[in-house]
Design a binder for these strands. Structure first.
Lengths: 132, 132
DNA sequence: CAGCATCCCGGTGGATACTG
DNA sequence: CAGTATCCACCGGGATGCTG
């Protein structure tokens, strides 16, 4: 709170938390960092709806992903509190992945983005360059 | 529509457009690609609210950005229909940047993400690892 | 089955200098 | 003022091989 001083509603609908320009910016940037990664979304969507999936299920369900990548992205999501990891102590090993409550809560937010994307044609996005 | 066949509501709130898992996934992925880039958000937030800013204003307002980066990100946003570029033919040159209508419409969607992020503590995101 | 270690390549973004 | 051009470092991500 020591950087910019403008603090009016950059985000109209925010009623509880007031954002400064900077706080809003690095808020979304943090979020994007969480979700960044070639396979995060595929994983997420496979897990939305409270589904639990084993490592090997995900591996099969996501064509093209390598084990390294799959585990890497899963671990990041887990570290960030989005994904839950459930270890069954058995031989052979069995590990399941699911979403945390917070992870589930991401769904509507992504939906908002999807809706925005869908508006693209309706609003004139490609007006070409304006002249003055 | 030739890849996966599961097509139930991955996104509960979507009433108009039905998404398959794949279409939803690369929907959000496209969106993230649009918004990806070290300076996009700072720019966006400086422009939210219909504000117009000159190149040099943005340059000063965004500490740390180089001209190359600033122009690069602005051009990408423009090409993607998010930012408008208004050229005033004068000497010395004057160019202003603003958001398109669609660009403006991004605001509430980002707000949804911010709200999600804010819920993090309230919902138990960091439960540690579950055992079974 | 689930996961870690290593090597390598390409693209993104940064610094710097020049131009209409 | 508003860019363009070049050169370079970094790291995300892919391939491959090994282990508890």
């Amino acid at each position: 709170m020591t950087r910019t001083h403008e603090k009016v509603g950059y985000l109209p609908e925010s009623k509880e938390a007031q954002h400064t320009l900077d706080s809003a910016v690095d808020g979304v940037e943090q979020i994007f960092r969480l979700l960044e990664g070639r396979w995060k979304f595929v994983i997420l969507f496979h897990l939305f709806g409270g589904k639990l999936k084993r490592f090997s299920e995900l591996e099969r369900a996501i064509p093209g992903v390598s084990q390294k990548m799959l585990i890497q992205q899963l671990r990041q999501l887990e570290a960030d509190g989005i994904v839950r990891r459930i270890v069954h102590h058995q031989v052979p090993p069995k590990v399941e992945y699911g979403l945390t409550e917070w992870g589930q809560a991401l769904c509507p937010a992504l939906d908002a983005l999807l809706k925005w994307h869908a508006q693209r044609e309706r609003l004139g996005a490609g007006e070409g360059r304006a002249k003055a």
